[in-house]
Design a protein around this nucleic acid. Structure first.
Length: 594
DNA sequence: GCCGTTTTCGGCCCGACTGTTTTCAGTCG
């Protein structure tokens, strides 16, 4: 049983307990669910290796929950949940995912109208039955219909790259309003989560209601979900929910902190405040009625005895302890990137010429760029064979002779065949400056076979970088089933670099894998996977954010180094690109059979 | 049900808004 499923069971229990008005237990189960969900190892493994005792070592898991986890892992079921479910057989997860519906509402809907599923709910609403229930009315019915429609179309979340420009546009519109002193983007957008459920904006202004009024009448707004004097929620035409909060300047830092989250980071901060006999809310940090801090986030963290925690780390994943002990990493900054190691050109499926790509990379301030067109295994792109690759290398040499201020590296995105072999011979690979390897087919292999396949390819001494290591496309395609711990261990052992592909719908590695790689001392590179000149901006726009969420410093990211140092750090420690045809000679070897 | 810089009992984050309830519960962030 996977962690998400275990967490799901605990969330169900929390909801059932909430329905019965049981005090405190619901929060305990929810907290545990969050801990389980974000735990970086399958609990089934933790249990296998360390038994119930190891489970109890997880914060939020005590004796009772460890028992339930043990039961779930062993039998796939939890008697208590089954009991509740028998009494009230409702689809809790999907029903409570609907805006405005919580456990209490689920209970009433089931008891009065026998609503068990989202479909039941929709039918009941359309029949006008819901309005007759206590605490419900016609307006609640309308809200539910809208929420149901939204859930169907988007699944409730949108990729960051879709949301970010919209949010920045709205922030700019608010900043132009009279009386607005300051606007900040908060929430998961500020934390740069890869998908966004709703966006949060914070405004400093004296008169809140005027700002709120202007906000709800912005042209992008399709529907007003709520509107008060200092707080409002709207739904945009594209389906994105945006929440606005207006605060006075002396509360800006506290509100930004509160509104940035994550929720569990906030809870941890507030608990820390309580321990110091203080109170933290969105207006400030208080001792009694006296405000000790609130104007900036920095002073709040400082007053709590913490180093400033960058928004990308605020997930309650150890950052508070690190901030207390001065162990927070110095996160990589966008400007630190000096090179791009994955780009495609019109030699295969890219839109632009090698020269155009090189010139744009230079314009962006990069020092080097690898051209990595596809290889023959990817037939539909017109992928290169050895002959075409040799021809391209010669052209790149010419390009380097012609262009100044940018170094073009000879590379390829080499296909990993089903059995883990590469589709270009070793001699040709050895002549390249940068060899990226990637899976583009047979995505559905069983976990063990997929892992073996990739590990084998990584063991090729010419394979420098594993491109988009999990193959996922955000909200389009699941990652293939691969043991990332094994991939990271192999990377460490063989010196293969892992790529963080910054193409916005990939962001592959994802944050937790970046963190694991960093912890294991495995270097990463942040690449654009550009298929046109305009894609070359992706690493600094999105890739660095993702790396920061994985606690990466500039030192963890190999393409923050100058070209020569970068090449020297690749497998085999090669030197300069030009005139180095033999630089791999000593590495030339038969692809090992594994 | 969990947990401990107010420890093994007695606490548990905090506040705004909505709807329909005329005094507040539920939900959300």
């Amino acid at each position: 049983m996977r962690n998400v499923e275990l967490a799901r069971c605990f969330r169900d229990l929390a909801a059932y307990l909430e329905m019965e008005d049981v005090p405190f237990k619901p929060r305990a189960y929810e907290k545990a669910a969050l801990a389980i969900e974000s735990y970086d190892r399958p609990l089934a493994e933790v249990y296998r290796d360390g038994g119930a005792k190891a489970l109890r070592a997880i914060p939020g898991i005590g004796a009772s929950m460890a028992d339930k986890l043990e039961e779930l892992i062993k039998t796939g079921k939890c008697a208590l949940r089954e009991q509740y479910h028998a009494r009230m057989p409702v689809e809790l997860a999907t029903l409570t995912a609907i805006e405005g519906i919580g456990p209490k509402a689920v209970k009433v809907l089931y008891e009065k109208l026998a609503v068990r599923t989202v479909e039941d709910l929709e039918a009941a609403v359309r029949a006008g039955k819901v309005r007759s229930l206590p605490h419900f009315g016609e307006r609640s019915e309308q809200k539910m219909l809208k929420a149901l429609a939204f859930l169907r179309t988007t699944g409730g979340r949108q990729p960051l790259a879709v949301t970010l420009p919209i949010v920045e546009q709205i922030a700019a519109a608010l900043a132009r309003l009279p009386g607005v002193e300051r606007v900040a983007v908060a929430g998961s957008v500020r934390r740069r989560k890869e998908t966004i459920g709703d966006a949060d904006l914070l405004v400093v202004a004296r008169k809140g209601d005027a700002v709120v009024q202007a906000f709800v009448t912005l042209p992008q707004v399709e529907r007003v979900l709520g509107q008060g004097r200092t707080k409002s929620s709207v739904k945009l035409a594209g389906g994105l929910q945006v929440d606005l909060r207006v605060v006075p300047a002396e509360s800006f830092g506290a509100a930004l902190c509160y509104f940035t989250g994550s929720k569990s980071h906030n809870v941890a901060l507030r608990q820390l405040a309580i321990k110091q006999r203080l109170k933290l809310n969105e207006y400030g940090l208080f001792r009694g009625a006296r405000r000790l801090a609130g104007r900036t986030e920095e002073e709040i963290y400082a007053r709590l005895g913490l180093a400033y925690v960058p928004p990308e780390l605020r997930e309650d994943q150890g950052e508070i302890e690190a901030a207390r002990s001065g162990a927070l990493p110095q996160l990589i900054e966008p400007g630190a990137l000096r090179g791009d190691l994955q780009t495609q050109t019109d030699w295969t499926d890219g839109a632009d010429s090698m020269e155009a790509m090189a010139r744009e990379a230079k314009r962006l301030g990069l020092e080097y760029i690898a051209i990595t067109d596809h290889t023959q295994g990817l037939t539909m792109t017109g992928g290169s064979d050895e002959t075409k690759l040799r021809k391209q290398m010669a052209e790149i040499d010419g390009l380097n002779a012609r262009l100044g201020g940018i170094r073009v590296l000879r590379g390829a995105e080499v296909n990993i065949d089903k059995d883990g072999m590469l589709d270009i011979d070793d001699e040709t690979l050895a002549a390249l400056d940068v060899v990226g390897i990637a899976v583009h087919s047979h995505f559905d292999l069983p976990r063990a076979e997929m892992t073996r396949r990739i590990v084998r390819a990584m063991r090729n001494p010419n394979a420098d970088i594993l491109f988009h290591p999990t193959g996922r496309k955000i909200q389009k395609r699941e990652a293939y089933d691969v043991d990332m711990d094994a991939i990271i261990a192999t990377a460490r052992e063989t010196g293969t670099v892992l790529e963080l592909d910054a193409y916005p719908d990939r962001l592959d590695l994802k944050d937790e894998h970046v963190r694991k790689a960093v912890q294991a001392g495995v270097p990463i590179v942040i690449d654009s996977d550009a298929h046109s000149v305009k894609h070359l901006a992706f690493p600094r726009q999105y890739g660095v954010d993702q790396a920061r969420r994985g606690w990466a410093t500039a030192a963890d990211v190999l393409n923050t180094r100058p070209g020569d140092a970068f090449l020297a750090a690749l497998k085999g420690g090669r030197q300069a690109a030009a005139g180095s045809r033999n630089r791999r000679a000593r590495n030339r070897a038969r692809t090992p059979r594994s």
